[in-house]
Design a protein around this nucleic acid. Structure first.
Length: 826
DNA sequence: ATAGGGTTAG
């Protein structure tokens, strides 16, 4: 349409229009010049519609003699394929005496842009310039748009700037075309500079500016330009539409609705395409309700939705589980004569499964009959999917079993009323499952942790001649591995290989995870070698697991050599895996080894972080080497790493354990409320330390300070305070906190009860002691006969049974406990 | 279309 408009405009400029006469007279004279442009085009079309080999070269030569730009345009317009058109165009270019005009070039350019042939478009452009084809400003604009539509934005700018070489002076239309191209490409900076060049920008210019800011997402500029357009009285449906579509894209649904109303207020209407864009856009943003409202508006405006539009709304409703509305819309769609596609029926059925089996079933029967067996099967798979999604993997499994049974017992009539009694689904025809069916059910069973069922199903599937899908094998292996069923996962691995599947990085990593968790370093190394071979990369986090497992089992050296082997294979463990190993070394007291590994890692590729330093500091503190710990701390600070709360906690606890409260408090006072504030751990260490040197009053002061700072005591903090107060001979104070502790539902350990009881007895408070004893009795079963708790229990019972202040019936109770204890403990 | 590590207090 644009092409025609330009041409019509250009017709008014005769000087630039090459006329038929000029060409005819300049061609050779022995040719019949009376042939009309129309019939020339007809004959050429006839020739170029044929394959190259079938063209009559003699005839072509004759026709070439009378070739005119009008005829070329007509032929280009009518040729069916862009290749034929291009072929013809090239031929025309080669005819002596013929010159393309800007209209023939543009006709070709338009065809190439519609055919998405940017490189041919570029060569065409070169020809335009090398032949210095004169262009009207309108034609130039058109060419620029063609270029722009194929992403040749820079070329468009170049054409514009070299218009002079084509004897063309761009006018505002040309500008508008260029600005539009730049706007669509999101080059708002260039749009702005071109805009400044223009002398009298008009409505179209402003519209393009608006578009460019929309494309660039510059909301403020958009409003500014919109206001300018509106001030000039240029707002039209197009302008509104640009705004509405953009705001929809940005998810500003409310603004869209506002704009639509404003537009309606001006007596303007959205067009059908915009309605569709809005409905789609709203659904995509999860605003299904708004989409439905917009759709109502659309219907009132006289437009009907198509399958795509209904589908998007129905699917949106299904996602929101508004199945009744979805079903209603589905019925409406069918009523106005739009047939659903398989995709939509599948969505409906799988969404209904589990919720509304009756409708799911009737939908399946209603649509299934119209489908091929494949289509029908895909509906059954939708049922399986729906059940799985609804958490009914076992029901899906039953249905699948019923489908498998159909296969093994074909019935003469061809129609099996197969009913899996528990799955509420009838199998109308003999639908056999396919690999996808097994995939759905096995994945569902995996998700529901029904691994045993899945394993049996896998075997039966293989016996029935299926191979399933990669995903189900992977999922099965992954699930088995995550619950430590290594042997079985190797088994599945073997089977999937036999079925022709190639294990993926995920498969291998699932097994790698299991091996790491079990601490099987030699198998893990073997697997890593295999993975290296396959180009698979291990998930490095699992390395920490194996290192921890090995260290906990006392195999620090094995952990170390595992890491070395990994490096050998070509996988570099990260600082966390190394830290875990260093920690393991610290915990077995091998500080030399820990320090050496720390140094090796530091001089290698990692700068150990604060945690790695903390681990070493912890090691030295626990070994009583406070000076060494402090040295690591200084080293860390010198590296520019800030100590954390944990760092301070370690030093404070270390010094407290050495009874050096002064040192501990010195570190405490260095703690920064911003970057490393004291925590409940800090206070617990201090309280424990203070009590162990008898400074219970100071301990209680810290206890209060802790709570004033908003730091809530936990079970360990309470235990430390109660323990400390008991040890310092203050069981009555301790009892207050012990009771508070219980009120805050921090259940004290049995040993704290026993300490409390014995401390109370020591002070002669047998009433409270006995009360606590009664409370702790239900828990004493877990006490081992050779433990400290056992001795504390015996001691308490002994004391209580001697106590004459206890009423006789209670003493009998105690004695009986003594007997029971004797029995259970011996 | 998948999994998920290191340090502190009684």
């Amino acid at each position: 349409m644009a092409l025609r408009a330009i041409r019509a405009k250009a017709r008014r400029l005769p000087s630039l229009l090459p006329s038929l006469n000029i060409h005819s007279s300049s061609s050779s004279t022995d040719i019949n010049v009376s042939i009309s442009s129309h019939s020339l085009a007809h004959h050429l079309l006839d020739q170029f519609s044929k394959p190259t080999l079938l063209r009559d070269s003699e005839r072509l030569r004759t026709l070439a003699a009378g070739l005119t730009p009008d005829a070329v345009e007509a032929v280009l317009r009518d040729l069916q394929s862009w290749r034929a058109a291009h072929d013809f165009f090239r031929w025309a270019s080669d005819q002596p005496g013929f010159r393309h005009t800007c209209y023939t070039y543009n006709a070709m350019a338009s065809i190439l842009s519609r055919a998405r042939q940017p490189s041919l478009l570029k060569s065409l452009l070169h020809e335009v310039f090398s032949r210095k084809c004169p262009m009207t400003p309108g034609a130039l604009g058109f060419l620029i748009r063609c270029l722009g539509s194929q992403g040749l934005v820079d070329e468009a700018g170049l054409v514009f700037d070299h218009a002079e070489e084509l004897s063309c002076v761009p006018n505002s239309y040309t500008y508008n075309c260029l600005i539009e191209v730049l706007a669509n490409a999101g080059r708002f900076k260039m749009v702005e500079s071109r805009f400044r060049e223009m002398r009298n920008p008009g409505k179209y210019t402003f519209t393009s500016i608006l578009k460019s800011y929309c494309n660039a997402g510059m909301v403020e500029e958009v409003w500014r330009v919109f206001k300018e357009i509106s001030d000039r009285g240029w707002v039209d449906e197009h302008v509104f539409t640009i705004l509405i579509v953009s705001f929809c894209k940005w998810g500003k649904v409310d603004k869209v609705l506002e704009l639509v109303e404003a537009m309606e207020g001006c007596g303007m209407r959205l067009n059908e395409k915009t309605f569709c864009v809005l409905v789609h856009g709203f659904v995509k943003q999860g605003r299904v309700q708004n989409a439905l409202q917009m759709f109502d508006k659309m219907k009132r405006a006289g437009f009907n939705g198509d399958l795509a539009l209904y589908s998007v709304m129905i699917e949106g409703l299904c996602v929101e589980k508004k199945l009744e509305s979805a079903l209603a819309l589905y019925r409406e769609m069918k009523k106005i004569g739009i047939g659903p596609d398989v995709r939509l029926v599948k969505t409906m059925i799988s969404s209904l499964c589990g919720v509304d089996m009756v409708n799911a079933n009737s939908l399946l029967e209603e649509e299934g009959d119209k489908l091929s067996l494949d289509g029908l099967l895909s509906l059954y798979n939708a049922v399986l999917e729906g059940m799985v999604r609804f958490g009914e993997a076992e029901r899906a499994h039953l249905l699948l079993r019923a489908m498998m049974a159909c296969r093994s017992s074909p019935v003469a009539s061809g129609d099996i009323e197969g009913v899996a009694s528990d799955c509420l689904f009838r199998i109308k025809k003999s639908v056999f499952p396919n690999d996808e069916s097994f995939n759905i059910v096995v994945c569902g069973l995996c998700k529901g942790e029904k691994l045993d069922i899945a394993l049996v199903l896998l075997d039966d599937m293989i016996s029935a001649g299926y191979r399933g899908k990669l995903l189900m094998h992977n999922n099965l292996i992954s699930k088995l591995c995550s619950v430590g069923r290594l042997e079985e996962s190797y088994n599945v691995l073997k089977k999937m290989r036999e079925l022709g599947f190639v294990p993926t990085e995920f498969t291998h990593n699932s097994i790698f995870y299991c091996l790491c968790k079990k601490g099987d370093s030699s198998a893990a190394i073997d697997l890593l070698k295999e993975m290296r071979h396959q180009g698979h990369v291990p998930w490095i986090k699992y390395c920490t697991l194996i290192v921890q497992k090995l260290c906990k089992g006392g195999k620090v050296d094995e952990a170390c050599s595992f890491l070395e082997d990994m490096v050998q294979i070509g996988f570099l463990p990260d600082i966390i895996a190394y830290s875990a190993t260093i920690d393991g070394m610290c915990r077995v007291g091998d500080m030399d080894k820990a320090l050496k590994l720390f140094r090796d890692v530091s001089s290698g590729c990692y700068l150990p972080d604060v945690v790695a330093h903390n681990i070493l500091i912890n090691g030295f503190c626990k070994a009583g080497r406070l000076a060494d710990a402090e040295e690591i701390l200084n080293e860390m600070v010198n590296k520019g790493i800030f100590p954390s709360t944990v760092t301070y906690n370690l030093m404070i606890d270390g010094w407290c354990k050495e009874d050096r409260i002064d040192k501990a408090i010195a570190f405490f006072s260095k703690m920064n409320d911003e970057s490393a504030p004291p925590s409940v751990v800090t206070y617990t260490s201090l309280i424990d330390g203070l009590c162990s040197v008898g400074r219970t009053e100071d301990a209680l002061r810290f206890w209060n300070e802790m709570q004033e700072k908003g730091c809530l005591p936990n079970k360990i903090a309470y235990s430390a305070l109660v323990h400390g107060l008991c040890k310092c001979g203050r069981p009555d104070t301790a009892l207050l906190y012990f009771i508070e502790m219980k009120e805050r539902t921090f259940e004290p350990d049995v040993s704290l009860y026993l300490l409390m009881i014995n401390s109370l007895l020591l002070k002669g408070n047998s009433v409270n002691a006995f009360e606590l004893l009664e409370q702790v009795l239900p828990m004493v079963g877990s006490i081992k006969s050779d433990s400290k708790d056992y001795r504390l229990m015996r001691k308490a019972l002994c004391e209580l049974s001697k106590d004459s202040g206890i009423p006789l019936d209670k003493r009998i109770l105690i004695d009986s406990v003594c007997d029971i204890q004797e029995d259970t403990y011996k």
